[in-house]
Amino acid sequence: MSTTIAVIGATGNMGSAISKSLSKGNYHLLLNAKDETKLGAVLGDIKKGNPAANVKTFDYSANASWEADVIILALPYGAEKEVAQRIKGIASNKIVISISNPLNETYSGLVTSPDTSAAEELQKLLPDSKVVKAFNTTFAADFSSPVIAGKQVDAFIAGNDGQALQTVSELVSTSGFNPIIAGELPVSRTLENMAALLIGLTIKYNYNWVAGWKVLHN
């Protein structure tokens, strides 16, 4: 049986990139977004590239989440709380992926305090869910170019549940990246700071939003 994945916020840059990448795998995708016209366009793009893709759209995040095994919140940090409250009752025991980076208005740092992260805050909002941090250190453009300068981009993952981490690692791999399990959920503080640094470097050195992290080792 294929894993069912709900992507909440599927029309954003990251949400659409994730959706299109995962549509290539053996998954049942449920896509949700506020703008139904844009959502239909994402669905059309997926079907055009892969007519056999197992994907459909929903007009309400709770409906999309109901039958999902994995819920990806492809949302800005500021939108997570509202959606978490909406899906809390049906997200129990499910994997919920936080991709957000709580950046300040100037992209110079994070609005969260050093002793927490967006993912940890989401875990408090969804205490019965298995929150995993993933996809936050990759740019949307990287999904179509996951190999940069001859190196496969690493995508870091953090969470407290071992089986959830393995499941998310498979999603990351399907998306074209090299998955690295970085540690338990508090490690997401570091991952969110890594994203802020990469964004700052991209702006400073004009990487054209095709950039990523790579751990080089023997």
Rank of each mutant, 00 (worst) to 15 (best):
L126W: 12
E105A: 03
L73A: 01
F139D: 04
G162S: 14
D128A: 13
S98M: 05
A140P: 14
G159E: 08
F143T: 02
S145F: 11
S117E: 14
L171W: 06
L75H: 04
G162W: 01
A155R: 03
L126T: 09
K130A: 00
S144G: 04
A91E: 13
V96P: 15
T137P: 10
A140K: 09
V168K: 07
I99G: 00
I99F: 07
K130E: 08
A140H: 13
G159P: 07
A68W: 03
S129A: 15
S92M: 15
A74R: 08
D154K: 04
N101H: 01
K94C: 02
E120G: 06
S100Q: 13
Y77S: 06
A68S: 10
Q166P: 02
A158L: 12
Q166I: 05
A140W: 14
D142K: 07
S61W: 06
K88A: 14
L122V: 05
V172F: 08
A118E: 11
F177A: 00
T116V: 03
E80C: 08
Y77E: 01
V132W: 03
D161S: 02
S108N: 11
I90F: 04
I72V: 10
I72Q: 10
N63D: 15
G109L: 05
E80H: 04
F143Y: 14
I97W: 13
V70G: 07
V147H: 07
E67C: 05
G78S: 06
S145R: 11
K151M: 13
S144I: 15
S117T: 06
Q152M: 12
F139N: 03
G159F: 08
